[in-house]
Simulated scan of single mutants.
Amino acid sequence: MRVVTDLDKCCGNGQCVMDAPDVFDQNDDDGTVIVLQEFPGAEQADAVRNAVRNCPTEAITVLDS
């Protein structure tokens, strides 16, 4: 799994950080998403998919390998 984000869509809501704190963080300046793990392990898969579903602006995409 590969995590891809679109910073132009990100509104800084932070739901991704709440769903998958080991994979996502927020920029201190504007709150936009920071990907901590571009290729998270299988143990993070459910949390990452929840973050994708819960993102209000659909700024996160998961590419399956």
Rank of each mutant, 00 (worst) to 15 (best):
C16N: 05
M1S: 04
N27G: 08
A47S: 10
V23Q: 14
L36M: 12
V23S: 12
V52Y: 05
M1E: 00
A51V: 08
D46W: 07
C55H: 04
T57Y: 01
V33D: 10
M1K: 00
D29Y: 15
G14T: 07
V33N: 09
E38V: 12
A42G: 02
D6L: 04
V33G: 04
V4P: 01
D28P: 14
M1N: 00
T57C: 14
R53I: 05
A42M: 05
E58M: 07
V17M: 06
C10P: 01
V52G: 00
L7I: 03
A47F: 06
E38Q: 14
C11S: 07
V33H: 10
Q26A: 10
A45S: 10
V3F: 02
Q44M: 08
I60W: 09
E38D: 06
K9M: 05
S65G: 13
I34V: 15
S65Y: 03
T57A: 13
A59G: 14
Q37K: 15
S65E: 10
D64N: 13
V23P: 08
A20M: 05
V33M: 13
C11P: 00
T5W: 02
D19R: 06
A47I: 07
V17D: 06
V23E: 15
T5I: 15
D19E: 02
V52W: 01
A42H: 06
C16K: 02
A47C: 05
E43T: 09
A45G: 01
E58C: 03
R53E: 15
N50V: 02
D46S: 14
L63I: 14
D25K: 11
V62K: 01
C11D: 08
N13C: 09
T61F: 08
R49H: 13
E58Q: 12
D30C: 04
R49E: 15
N54R: 02
C11V: 08
S65Q: 09
F24C: 08
D19N: 04
D29Q: 13
V23M: 13
A59R: 11
P40I: 08
C10H: 05
I60E: 10
A59N: 05
V33T: 14
E38L: 06
R49I: 03
A51R: 00
P21Q: 13
M18P: 00
D6R: 08
R53D: 15
V17I: 08
N54K: 01
P56L: 02
D19L: 01
D46Y: 09
G41V: 07
D22Y: 00
A59Q: 04
F39A: 12
V52T: 03
D64A: 09
T61P: 01
D64R: 09
T5Y: 02
T5N: 02
D29S: 10
E38T: 12
A42Q: 06
L7Q: 03
L7H: 02
N54P: 00
M1A: 09
T61E: 11
C16Y: 06
P21S: 11
E43F: 04
C55N: 06
Q15E: 07
T5G: 03
Q44K: 06
A51G: 13
V62N: 06
V4H: 10
V52L: 03
Q15A: 03
A45N: 07
M18L: 09
A20N: 05
G31K: 08
N54F: 11
N27T: 09
G31S: 07
